[in-house]
């Protein structure tokens, strides 16, 4: 478990990291990056699995089930749309092949 001061360090450093990542992004990638960060918080799936895994009563299982359902939707959906969007950001020379459709 992470506690107290160590957690505050993690919060702070993660905060700086996120700020640093975004600060140099060209506008052209804002949407894919928003989509990508949307995917990354799909990690909530892991927490949802634990919440359902430790559920004891039926009510807790029901809520935990919803949590996993939603978390999995976030993770998988976030990945699929980001991947599809970035698929189009291939360098121009390769682009011609896939564009006939």
């Amino acid at each position: 478990m992470i506690e107290g001061l160590a957690a505050i360090y993690i919060f702070m450093l993660a905060g700086f990291t996120g700020y640093e990542i975004i600060s140099k992004v060209p506008v052209i990638l804002h949407t894919p990056l928003m989509s990508g960060s949307n995917f990354v918080h799909g990690i909530v799936l892991v927490g949802a699995m634990v919440a359902l895994g430790i559920a004891e009563t039926t009510a807790q299982q029901a809520i935990g089930f919803i949590a996993v359902l939603l978390g999995a939707g976030n993770a998988v959906g976030g990945y699929v749309v980001t991947e599809r969007m970035l698929e189009m950001f291939r360098p121009s020379d390769k682009k011609e092949k896939g564009e006939d459709s």
Binding site: I10, A14, I21
Partner: peptide
């Protein structure tokens, strides 16, 4: 993992 990923997105998203 949840703390780091969540807060990174939180701060990156706020800036965006």
């Amino acid at each position: 993992a949840m703390i780091i990923a969540g807060i990174v997105v939180g701060s990156a998203g706020s800036l965006l």
